[in-house]
Design a protein around this nucleic acid. Structure first.
Lengths: 142, 142
DNA sequence: CGGGTCAAGTTGTACTGTGCAACCAGGTGA
DNA sequence: TCACCTGGTTGCACAGTACAACTTGACCCG
């Protein structure tokens, strides 16, 4: 396989993967869409941020984020904390329930991934992980 | 990085990638959605098949495929050819216009991929490609 | 200070992709 | 023949998304 072929394969496989990801995510975790999962994850990592930050980070419209956040709030998974300095701003934070669900989904995702990767030698795993990081780093939004 | 960490990273990066793929695909090729592109691609590869085959292959509902195909037909990109042996069946085939558009999108996707992967050494490209193939092979539907 | 402008977020509207269920039409086998 | 199977379409509902208009609050400059 030369470089040109490899690029073809990478393109093909990434496309195939992308097409499937949403559907399988929906099937595996009906309680949390891929977007919700991502937003919750970001809140956990960042320790709380504004809706606008989420929109910018994931290249989503602010209205989309607004609605997603509303849903997550209705579900009791995130809380809004008005910023005392700037009354336009509300900081979003995971609730305990949100943290719990997130952990649960992460756990089950992890199990699925581990299973799928069970027969990979460690060396291949680390190399594959590094490649993915490198590949994704070449994109604007995380 | 040990195996457990690598699995975490792979999970994280694949999730990130999946989340972004649709949006960027939509932005890059407004003339052809990711699904349409995939279906067209399959028709090209297979040299024509039935709607049911597409549904099975991509784990989509037959109604979804039916609508997508209708749209592609309206756009003049695929043609339906009734099966003379079984009047329930219609074989779908790319039209010349469909082949043209598909080639065009494939070309521009390829350029984008090449660009993103331009500074990768050939050895890394081929290894990454192999890993992706291996990873995706572990799933039911292509 | 006051008015213009900018920023955060919400809401109305529309569109796409999707699945499920009901249905139709054509084939198949007991 | 009649019951059942199969390929496909259509009606309906819903999620996720964007865009545009709007509200509210902050900020800056004259």
């Amino acid at each position: 396989m030369d470089a040109a072929e490899a690029v073809e394969v990478i393109q093909h496989e990434m496309t195939a993967f992308a097409r499937r990801a949403r559907a399988s995510a929906g099937r595996m975790h009906p309680e949390l869409s891929l977007v919700s999962y991502t937003l919750l994850g970001h809140l956990e990592e960042s320790g709380g941020c504004r809706a606008t930050d989420l929109a910018a980070h994931y290249a989503l419209d602010k209205s989309t984020v607004s609605r997603q956040v509303s849903a997550l709030e209705r579900a009791g998974l995130v809380g809004r904390h008005p910023d005392p300095d700037d009354h336009r701003v509300q900081t979003l934070q995971l609730t305990d329930a949100g943290r719990e669900i997130l952990a649960q989904v992460t756990r089950s995702r992890r199990v699925a991934f581990r299973e799928r990767l069970a027969d990979w030698p460690e060396e291949d795993l680390t190399r594959f992980a590094a490649y993915l990081e490198r590949y994704n780093a070449g994109t604007a939004a995380d």
